[in-house]
Nucleic acid binder design. Sequence first.
DNA 1: AGATATTTGTTCGTATGTATT
DNA 2: TAATACATACGAACAAATATC
Lengths: 265, 265
Amino acid sequence: MESDQPLRRKRTDEIVDAIKRTIVEHGLQPGDRLPQERELIEQFAASKGTIREALKALEVQGLIRTRTGPGGGAFIERMSEQRAMSLLSNFLFAKEISIADIYALRKVLEPLTAVSAMANIEEAGYRRLADIIAIYDHEPADAQERWDQRMAELDFHSVVAEYADNALLAFTCRFLQRLLKEQAVCRDIYRQPRPVLRQRGIAYQRELIAAMRRGDADAVHTIMSDHMAYAEQAMLDLQAELQGDFLHDPVARGQGEVRRRATIG
Amino acid sequence: MESDQPLRRKRTDEIVDAIKRTIVEHGLQPGDRLPQERELIEQFAASKGTIREALKALEVQGLIRTRTGPGGGAFIERMSEQRAMSLLSNFLFAKEISIADIYALRKVLEPLTAVSAMANIEEAGYRRLADIIAIYDHEPADAQERWDQRMAELDFHSVVAEYADNALLAFTCRFLQRLLKEQAVCRDIYRQPRPVLRQRGIAYQRELIAAMRRGDADAVHTIMSDHMAYAEQAMLDLQAELQGDFLHDPVARGQGEVRRRATIG
DNA sequence: AGATATTTGTTCGTATGTATT
DNA sequence: TAATACATACGAACAAATATC
């Protein structure tokens, strides 16, 4: 029988919630300071250890940050995108996300992001994109460079997302890119040589930039859709090749299983 | 001057990372137990308080859960979807997400989810959907029931997402639904009476179920797209009405500002 | 049902590290 | 350099929860 919820909440959790409430009620903004440990100890009639556990919980949630020294204490903090993605990764860690799953979202979201970003990119943004393309504009000399090129290809889309107005959309796209970077299946694929795909991807991205420069939203949407469809197919093909190898190489196959899960945020 | 990264990492964080590594390396699965506090104290040569802070950090990240008593200790845990959404909400808390932002994603993702769910729903699923529609199949008697109906309308889509194969897609859709439930702007809107929208929404959902039953993927996609576009427009219209009110009522306007941010997960 | 043993949860006192003045 | 104010870490003891007998 599954045990039901504990009726008596832990003291630490009560304090965490109480502090969260005061943050909201007082409308505390990043940089504002919470009462110091000593005051919190008095306020909640709790010991130092309990208060510290509560503050640790808030810190992990990206809500505060503590500093030592005079004038130090716990300060309100904006959660970084990186931390948000790490926490979300911990959730999807056990969920067996496939390449097709990721691209199902990318295929519809990246085009929206590109269109949304188009109006805001300006010349400096185009230069940034050109600089990134330059990273994979040539055959890689070694495995390391090949890997860096794959990562840079994803960074291209990350930069585009930076200019999108819709923060929710941009975050989702960037998270999908991160998933591709960290999923073990993808890591294996990215290690494989694939010169044709590289050149084709660049062609798409150059077309995309041209369409953006002339403000052609329809073209931007279409090009990015095609780009994503092509990228997905290429990934799936390479995955099929890899799995074909595994069928004839039990050792590598076993490693593939073990390495499916990469890291915890 | 911005202080650079602390060269000396905190003891607690080192221990957190060390434990995470052992979880990954040993391939620990939900239900497996970590060493007890006493052993961890020995293993890391740290004090009880430090170990407890580290365990608290892991607990907040949804990676473990602790139990008292004989045979108790820290057990590996799968992060619940609810916790993942709470943590993600903390990140988007400060990001000023608009209704249009949310619907930009819903318009393209909900149709995909519905199509993906179609093949798995079966008769029991259709009954669940019918039961939910029954909640808002009539005029609400009071404000409370009106509110419950708005929530149930979102639950309809949540149930559909349950049957989708793509866990990433389903999670995203359900998170968007949660955003609509918790965003203060939306809460104000949902409180407004809107009989026409209610009936129109039901019509879409009934058509959707019919299309799903006959396995017509194209129709499912189209109907859901139209449904979302209609829902967005209705929300935006109601929002415009509300803001019109605010223009003539500085007090309510101020409240709207204050209440924009609802809660912290 | 009640006693007991085991393990986390909490408290207190103290000492150390770190940043500001 | 020294004094100060704050977080960080340690250790021993006690309280509360819970599985087992």
